[in-house]
Computed example of a mutant assay.
Amino acid sequence: MYYAIIAEDVDNSLDARMKARPAHLERLKVLSSEGRLLIAGPHPVNDSEEPGPAGFSGSLIVAEFASLQAAKSWADDDPYFAAGVYKRVLVKPFKKVLP
């Protein structure tokens, strides 16, 4: 089943985010190579795909896991969480309808 991992950043997270980004992306690449990643990306602070120094306010990952607990465990091990980028992470089931 798919699960949505919805993360909210701490204020001024850009520096910590950039430092942890390579490790964060490597984990997402593993999910993708296993065919389990539906979508992933950050939420820009402003109305721009490239928000510059304003940075990001959080992230969204939708991926397939064996259970809600497995999804939560995966999210808990995210390098952004370990680096203090995320202040809050919500994990919940997701049902893909379209496309």
Rank of each mutant, 00 (worst) to 15 (best):
Y80V: 03
P22T: 05
A16L: 08
A23Y: 05
G52H: 12
Y3V: 07
K87H: 06
G41C: 13
D15K: 13
G41L: 14
F94Q: 09
F81S: 06
N46R: 08
G58F: 12
A23N: 11
D77W: 04
S33A: 15
L28A: 12
D9I: 14
Q69S: 10
S32P: 00
A66C: 10
E26R: 15
I39Y: 12
I5Q: 07
K87Q: 06
D9M: 14
N12K: 07
Y86K: 09
D11E: 15
Y80D: 00
P44I: 06
L68Y: 11
L38Q: 07
V91N: 00
P44L: 08
S73C: 02
H24A: 09
P51A: 02
A83K: 03
V97C: 05
F65I: 02
K92M: 10
K96N: 08
A83C: 01
Q69R: 04
P44S: 11
L98P: 01
H43P: 00
W74Q: 12
A23W: 04
A82W: 03
G84F: 05
E64Q: 15
K92F: 06
A54N: 12
I61M: 06
F94H: 13
L98Y: 12
A20L: 00
G52D: 14
F94M: 03
Y80F: 13
V89F: 05
A4F: 13
K96I: 06
D47H: 15
P93S: 13
A40V: 07
I61L: 04
F81I: 13
H24K: 06
D78M: 14
S32V: 00
A75S: 09
L38V: 12
D11I: 08
A63T: 10
R17D: 12
R21E: 05
E64C: 13
K29F: 03
F65Q: 04
R17G: 11
R36D: 07
L68C: 08
L28G: 09
S13R: 02
A66M: 08
A4G: 15
M1G: 10
S48W: 00
K72R: 02
P44W: 12
A82L: 00
S48F: 01
Y86T: 11
L14E: 04
P99K: 03
Y2N: 07
V10A: 02
